[in-house]
């Protein structure tokens, strides 16, 4: 079973069914928190900061009752990369050193490597947590509220929100199209003797890259034309892109206050 088979079927942006307090939070709150965590981790990639952000994410996973099965299964090559990276960092011989069973090992590199990996995991999970607990339909209206102040700068906010609503709506359709396109390429792969090829790899897909890209882009343009037609039939751009999707409540204020306090504490502690 190759990984490529799952292009498009990988479960991205899917709601984990439930009605936990995290599910009930306003979508804008969750987006803000994810954005703040990303900024903190980028500005201060220290253990206390990564730990604090990780704790926030872990709390969200726990309260949101996200099962382990929701996490994507890590491919084997990823483990290889992790182990190889750790090995190289060990060999680099960065201080401090520790004595283990009489052997002196420089673990400084390992610490840096672990920190780097932890950072990546926290950044990835915080975004995924939003996707797992937020119905897609709530995202665009929440973003419309969040970016409303940009109207004062005369930025075309409504255009951006309409584009976002269309992008969110179209993602599953495009993913399905990619799935069919990839299947089409698999159906026509032949070896030198004209026999079907059993093993499927990214390399084989790249061999057909121009056909595949051309077909994907033409299909997308055609879909874009349908969407434009549908927008025109609804009276053009500038109207609603979603039904009412809730507003921030007390719980949101509490969460935002807590995360805000955490941010100040981390940034102040240097």
């Amino acid at each position: 079973m190759s990984g490529a088979r799952r292009v498009g079927t990988v479960t991205v942006l899917r709601l984990v069914p439930g009605n936990s307090p995290v599910h009930r939070l306003w979508a804008g709150t969750k987006l803000l928190v994810a954005a703040v965590l990303a900024v903190i981790c980028s500005v201060r990639p220290t253990w206390p900061a990564i730990g604090a952000c990780g704790a926030v994410v872990a709390l969200g996973l726990l309260v949101g009752r996200i099962p382990l099965g929701a996490f994507p299964r890590l491919p084997r090559w990823f483990l290889v990369v992790v182990v190889a990276g750790a090995g190289l960092n060990l060999l680099a011989g960065v201080d401090p050193r520790v004595e283990i069973l009489g052997v002196s090992i420089a673990v400084g590199g390992l610490e840096q490597w672990a920190r780097f990996m932890a950072l990546a995991v926290v950044l990835l999970t915080s975004g995924a947590l939003v996707g797992w607990t937020t119905p897609l339909g709530e995202v665009a209206p929440a973003v419309r509220t969040l970016v409303a102040p940009l109207r004062w700068l005369r930025l075309p906010v409504d255009e951006f929100v309409s584009a976002l609503a269309l992008a969110l709506r179209s993602l599953p359709l495009l993913a399905e199209e990619i799935r069919v396109l990839t299947a089409t390429v698999r159906l026509r792969l032949r070896d030198e003797r004209g026999e079907p090829v059993a093993r499927f790899s990214v390399g084989l897909v790249l061999g057909q890259v121009h056909d595949l890209l051309g077909a994907a882009v033409v299909a997308t343009l055609r879909r874009g034309r349908d969407v434009a037609e549908a927008i025109t039939a609804r009276g053009g751009l500038g109207g609603a892109v979603a039904a009412d999707a809730g507003r921030p409540r007390t719980a949101d204020a509490l969460v935002l206050f807590a995360v805000g306090a955490l941010t100040v504490a981390i940034l102040a502690s240097g």
Partner: peptide, 9 residues
């Protein structure tokens, strides 16, 4: 808008 949003998608 539709074409650009979908192509970016």
């Amino acid at each position: 808008l539709a074409e650009a949003a979908l192509l970016a998608d």
